[in-house]
C-alpha cells in the first residue's frame, strides 16, 4: 500500500492505536473494514478531536481522508452546478463569489457555522456525517436538492439526495465502513430564489435553537408558485421537510397572507423536543417566524 502510515504508539490520552492516511478510496475502505467498526473517518476534526478528548466516543483508529484525490477541492461548472469534495472546508466555499452570488441559502448557512477559524477547518461532508439535527448546512442543502455520493456500506459507489441521508441524531445511512465522497448541487432554476435563517441567542459560536431554509420557483408568466421546498433544522431527530406547508403554496400567488399561512402549517407540522436550548413550544413558534421570513426572502429573490 502506498502512503500507508501506521503509528503503533499513539497518544494514550486519546486512546488511539492506529492512524492512517490512505491515498486512494479503495485503501481507505480496506482500512475501515479492518477496523471492524472501531475506526473513524477523520476530516476537519472539529467534532472528532473534541469528542475523543471528552471521551464521549472511543475509536481505536482514525482514518484521515484528506489525502484522497479530489476530496478537499470543489468546482463550479456552468450548466452543472457545484461539485464539492466531502472534505472541503466551509471557508473555501464561503469566500467564493460563485457560491455567494447564486447559492444564497447555502452561503447564508455557511456564514453562521462556528467561527472564521472553525470554518477553515470544519468540512461540509463532516457537517452531514456528524448528523446533528441542528447541522446548519443541512436545510440549505436539502432545499438546494443537493445529492451526495458515497461508497462502502458493502456496496459500490452510489448517490442519494441529502434529504435521504439522515437516520437520527448522530446517525446517517453510512455504516462504519461507509465513506462520503462528494456533494453535487444543481444550478438554481430560472425564476427561483432561496434563503436560510436560524435563531441563536449569540451571533457566533452557537448552535441553532431552530433553523429553516426555503426555496421557491415561480411561473414566469403568471408569477404563481410552481414549486416550494421548505426544510427545518433542530426540530426533529433529523433535518426535515415541511411538506404540507410546501403544498399550501403551490399553484398560488405568493402573497404575504399565503406565506404566513404556510408558516403556520409548518409550525403545526413539526414536532420538536424540549431541551437545554429551548422548549418544544418555543421551537414551534420560531419555526413559524423563520419559515415566513425565509419564504418572503426567497420569493423576493425569485422575482428579481
Amino acid at each position: 500500500m502506498t502512503q500507508f502510515r501506521a503509528h503503533p504508539i499513539l497518544s494514550p490520552v486519546l486512546g488511539l492505536e492506529g492512524y492512517y492516511e490512505p491515498a486512494s478510496t479503495d485503501e481507505a475502505l480496506d482500512i475501515l473494514r479492518q477496523g471492524s467498526g472501531n475506526y473513524k473517518p477523520f476530516a476537519g476534526g472539529t467534532d472528532v478531536m473534541i469528542n475523543l478528548r471528552r471521551r464521549t466516543v472511543t475509536y481505536k483508529g482514525l482514518v484521515n481522508i484528506k489525502r484522497l484525490p479530489g476530496i478537499t477541492s470543489w468546482s463550479n461548472k456552468a450548466g452543472e452546478g457545484l461539485h464539492i469534495g466531502a472534505a472541503t472546508p466551509f471557508g473555501d466555499l464561503e469566500s467564493s463569489p460563485s457560491v455567494t452570488q447564486r447559492y444564497s441559502a447555502l452561503a447564508e448557512s455557511i456564514r453562521v457555522i462556528g467561527s472564521v477559524q472553525l470554518r477553515n477547518m470544519a468540512t461540509i461532508g463532516g457537517n452531514l456525517c456528524n448528523a446533528s439535527p441542528a447541522a446548519d448546512s443541512a436545510p440549505a442543502l436539502i432545499v438546494s436538492k443537493a445529492t451526495i455520493t458515497f461508497t462502502g456500506n458493502g456496496e459500490g459507489t452510489r448517490s442519494c439526495l441529502v434529504e435521504q441521508f439522515f437516520r437520527g441524531p448522530g446517525r446517517s445511512i453510512l455504516d462504519s465502513d461507509g465513506l462520503l465522497l462528494s456533494l453535487d448541487i444543481p444550478e438554481p432554476e430560472p425564476n427561483s430564489g432561496d434563503c436560510f435563517q436560524r435563531f441563536t441567542p449569540r451571533g457566533a459560536l452557537d448552535i441553532g435553537i431552530a433553523s429553516a431554509a426555503s426555496r421557491v420557483t415561480l411561473d414566469q408568466s403568471s408569477g404563481r408558485v410552481l414549486e416550494a421546498v421548505i426544510a427545518l433544522g433542530a426540530v426533529a431527530p433529523t433535518p426535515v421537510r415541511a411538506v404540507k406547508a410546501e403544498e399550501a403554496l403551490v399553484g398560488h400567488e405568493p402573497t404575504s397572507d399565503l406565506m404566513a399561512q404556510a408558516a403556520k402549517i409548518a409550525k403545526e407540522e413539526c414536532n420538536p423536543i424540549s431541551d437545554i436550548r429551548g422548549s418544544a413550544s418555543y421551537r414551534q413558534a420560531l419555526v413559524e417566524v423563520l419559515v415566513r421570513r425565509t419564504l418572503e426572502q426567497a420569493v423576493e429573490r425569485a422575482q428579481k
Binding site: 476534526g45 484521515n64 484528506k66 477553515n120 477547518m121
Partner: peptide, 11 residues
C-alpha cells in the same frame, strides 16, 4: 486563521 488547539500536527 485556524484553531491550533484542535489541529493535529499531522495536518
Amino acid at each position: 486563521p485556524v484553531l491550533s488547539c484542535i489541529l493535529m500536527v499531522s495536518d
